[in-house]
Design a protein around this nucleic acid. Structure first.
Length: 265
DNA sequence: ACGAGGTCCTGCGAGC
DNA sequence: TGCTCGCAGGACCTCG
């Protein structure tokens, strides 16, 4: 998402900002956000964890899209059917518009000054795609917790950017039981887990993410990685490795977890 | 330190 | 057909 919009945004000035729902804002008022955005120049657009970070010559706009949010640089008006889902619209000085759409509005928008951003950034764990994310680094994360390994992988404070889908896929690929306490994951499985996490996240980014449900009709592109998911949303279907019926449980953090009780231990 | 459970919001599928 | 109901999702919260 970020790589798609970066070139259309960097260096642009925001002429006008419109917000149609206040309930996505965290820690900033509508008035302050809109006043800050209007007239700001976009310096850079980057990704941190699951968030798009739009740095301006004033504050940073941090977009947490959740599962249903989407950022798009458009040269035309939104189709009428999608207009009601547009949460934030930024008119740029080249005639284009940055649109943040979010059907369910579980996504959030933050407007952070330097100190706020530093605090925010420091509270998030390391990026799995950084060089520094070694098997040893993962080992340290896992051995610090008795919670289920899947929960630890999804906890943004321990590791950045891994959500329900990719945690399940990586644990399946590395043959680890998602409910196993993190500190009990055998050392011999840590390097494979790191490798699979990195492989899956890279592949997902390359495929432009996983479009699991498309809430809107007539949208442009959706991600393609859902075609490569081996366990997610496949409870009751055969394991693609051994044929055993995949199990589905809500027992971990009240989130659906699908795994193969035969392959993953 | 941990699990359990609730909250936000809305589309959708199931059931009547 | 038309209704209600429960569920899904990520981050964050409280409670025990």
């Amino acid at each position: 998402m970020v790589s798609d919009i970066r070139s259309g945004l960097e260096g642009r000035r925001i002429l006008q900002a419109r917000l149609s729902h206040d309930d996505v804002l965290r820690g900033v008022s509508r008035r302050a956000l809109l006043a800050g955005l209007k007239g700001a120049r976009i310096r850079s657009v980057t990704r941190r964890a699951k968030h798009a970070v739009i740095e301006t010559d004033r504050n940073r706009l941090v977009v947490q899209p959740g599962m249903t949010g989407n950022l798009e640089v458009r040269r035309t008006e939104l189709p009428a059917a999608e207009r009601r889902y547009a949460v934030l619209r930024l008119e740029l000085d080249n005639g284009r518009t940055l649109v943040y759409q979010d059907v369910r509005r579980l996504g959030t928008l933050l407007w952070l000054d330097q100190a706020g951003w530093d605090r925010y950034d420091q509270a998030i764990g390391p990026e799995p795609l950084d060089r520094s994310f070694t098997a040893r680094a993962l080992q340290r994360i896992l051995e610090g917790s008795r919670a289920a390994v899947k929960k630890v992988l999804m906890d943004q404070r321990s590791l950045a950017g891994v959500g329900n889908i990719y945690a399940q896929e990586a644990l399946f690929a590395a043959r680890i039981d998602p409910s196993k306490p993190a500190r009990e994951v055998p050392q011999s499985r840590v390097a494979p887990l790191r490798r699979e996490l990195v492989r899956i996240l890279r592949a997902a980014i390359r495929a432009k993410g996983s479009t699991v449900r498309d809430y809107r009709t007539g949208t442009g592109e959706s991600g393609q990685f859902q075609l490569e998911l081996l366990v997610y949303d496949r409870a009751g279907e055969p394991c693609l490795r051994c044929g055993t019926t995949l199990s589905g449980t809500h027992a971990i953090d009240a989130r659906i977890t699908v795994f193969c009780h035969r392959c993953q231990s």
